[in-house]
């Protein structure tokens, strides 16, 4: 019997409130979730149901008001900012809807950015890996173009390459194809899933696109702050 892929992420009974005073909203109402390496998860649901809030909590960009988050077996929900920042750099890659490339930098520099912070590789190795990642997303010819000189689809592919730069165990993608046309959506999704599978990474993506969601290994629909 084949061994189950190892657990990359687990959250238990997550609660999150947003806003203050009368406008305070209970966005997540005790969400539990697990993600294993090599699997692609889709979190779907209507706007405002808490998908993105959950994703930011899982990515340690935000802190929960209750519950726990484990990344590769380490409880991170109560850790300080430095530990969460270090965990983000080492274990998590992000792809955002609006790609968030740093436009003053070339594609190559954008991909090298997380590697330079982690500083695990020599500069020449970082550059070689960034070249290899950009090749794998089909941008080998455009490594020295600035973010402003790339199309939306190309920028999102650079963002995918950047998310993979430090070989994280978890890729979190918030509507990664939400801003792209059909052709580019399919290309970016294929890239994400192929590279994640190849490298045994857990991919968790939030999407409104049912076609994209159908192609994932696991679909988790959400409504009113809970998985349904």
């Amino acid at each position: 019997m084949a061994e189950a892929p190892s657990l990359a992420l687990r959250c238990t009974e997550l609660h999150r409130y947003l806003g203050e005073g009368d406008g305070r909203v209970h966005v997540l109402k005790g969400v539990s979730f697990e993600a294993r390496r090599g699997q692609v998860y889709a979190i779907v649901g209507p706007s405002g149901c808490g998908k993105s809030t959950l994703l930011y909590l899982l990515g340690l960009l935000d802190q929960p008001d209750g519950g726990s988050i484990e990344i590769n077996g380490h409880t991170m929900s109560n850790s300080d900012d430095l530990a969460r920042t270090a965990a983000r750099g080492a274990h998590i890659g992000f792809v955002f809807q609006f790609h968030f490339l740093m436009l003053e930098f070339t594609a190559l520099e954008n991909v090298m950015m997380p590697m330079r912070k982690l500083a695990k590789l020599a500069p020449a190795d970082m550059e070689a890996r960034a070249h290899q990642l950009l090749e794998s997303v089909g941008l080998g010819e455009k490594t020295h173009r600035l973010g402003t000189q790339l199309s939306g689809g190309e920028q999102q592919r650079v963002a995918v390459a950047r998310a993979l730069a430090n070989e994280p165990s978890i890729i979190l993608a918030d509507e990664p194809t939400g801003n792209l046309d059909v052709k580019n959506s399919g290309m970016v999704f294929d890239l994400l899933t192929r590279l994640a599978k190849d490298h045994g990474q857990a991919v968790i993506l939030v999407t409104h696109n049912p076609e994209i969601a159908q192609r994932c290994d696991v679909i988790r629909p959400m409504r009113d702050g809970l998985f349904v």
């Binding site: 960009l61 920042t85 983000r88 955002f96 490339l101």
Partner: peptide, 13 residues
């Protein structure tokens, strides 16, 4: 946004 992306990549405060 750049600050957010840097922080998401592991850049500290």
């Amino acid at each position: 946004k750049d600050i957010a992306i840097l922080r998401s990549m592991g850049y500290e405060r």
